[in-house]
Design a binder for these strands. Sequence first.
DNA 1: GCCAACGTTGGC
DNA 2: GCCAACGTTGGC
Length: 154
Amino acid sequence: MRYWLMKSEPNVYSIDDLARQQGKTDHWDGIRNYQARNFIRDDMRKGDLAFFYHSNCQQPGIAGIMKIAREAYPDFTAFDSKHKYHDPKSDPEQPRWFMVDVELVRRFDETISLQQLKEHEKLKDMPLLQRGSRLSIMPVTKPQWDYILKLENS
DNA sequence: GCCAACGTTGGC
DNA sequence: GCCAACGTTGGC
């Protein structure tokens, strides 16, 4: 079982939006980066856990936990010419982009802020904290995962 | 809104 | 295959 961190801009799609979905489950669309795609397509498995990270907002940080509810399948928004995530280079015969389904496990009472994460030497190797890193889907090691969970109530 | 860092595109 | 130009990301 693996652990992940998945970024989303809350003004586009927040953890509250996920909480409002039927069964608190939704597809995670719009990944248009090859490294991120490879992670979800090749390495994510049903039952893996992921942090929901809010990016590009007033308080960037980890807002809660999700579970991977369905493994990778073609991102159908790429096929829709009217969709903002449309990519003419992806077609149903040879899909370029993939998505998974996620299910909300729980929201944190308070977001674990990026600033807070930066304060911990134990987390300094996370891709999230690397200078200039823009990766939107990234693996989290078990020690990192456990360490971050302990920050929740500190 | 600014801007540094990064990924992608496309001419050559 | 190089690399300049461009678009995007995301913290601040």
